[in-house]
Simulated assay, not measured.
Amino acid sequence: MSIGWIVINIIDIILFAIVSLTVAYLTVFSIAALFNRRTGVPAAKHQNRFIILIPAYKQDKSIEQTVKTALGQTYPQRLFDITVISDHQKEITNFHLAQYPITLLTPNFASSTKAKSLQLAINNLPQFKIYDIAIVLDAGSVVEPEFLQQMNDAFETAGTKAIQAHRLSKNRDTAIANLDAIFEEINNSVFRRGHITLGISAAISGSGIAYDFKWFKENIMKTNTGWEDKELEALLMRQHIYVDYFDHIHVYDEKTRQSADFNKQRGRWASTQLRSLFSNARYLPAAILKKRYDLIDKIIQWMLIPRTIMVAVMVLMSIVLPFIYLTLAVKWWIMFAVTMLVLAIATPDYLVDDKWDKSFFKAPFIMLVSLLNITKMIRRKKNFENRN
Rank of each mutant, 00 (worst) to 15 (best):
F191S: 12
I196L: 08
S201C: 03
S201G: 06
A202L: 12
I204Q: 02
I204C: 04
G208V: 09
A210M: 11
D212K: 00
W215Q: 00
W215A: 01
F216A: 03
N219S: 02
M221V: 04
M221G: 02
M221F: 03
T225K: 03
T225L: 05
G226D: 15
D229C: 00
K230I: 06
K230A: 06
A234D: 02
L235N: 11
L235V: 05
R238D: 06
Q239K: 12
Y245C: 04
H248E: 14
V251H: 07
D253Q: 14
D253A: 05
K255G: 02
T256P: 00
T256Q: 12
S259M: 10
A260M: 08
F262H: 02
F262W: 02
K264E: 07
G267N: 13
G267A: 04
A270M: 11
A270L: 05
A270P: 04
A270C: 07
A270H: 08
A270G: 10
S271T: 10
Q273R: 12
L274G: 10
S276R: 03
N280P: 09
A281W: 13
R282Y: 13
R282G: 04
Y283H: 15
Y283N: 12
P285W: 10
A286S: 15
R292S: 13
L295W: 08
L295S: 10
Q301E: 14
W302D: 10
I305M: 13
R307D: 09
T308Q: 06
M310E: 11
M310N: 11
A312D: 05
M314I: 07
V315T: 14
V315W: 07
L316S: 14
V320P: 03
V320W: 05
F323V: 11
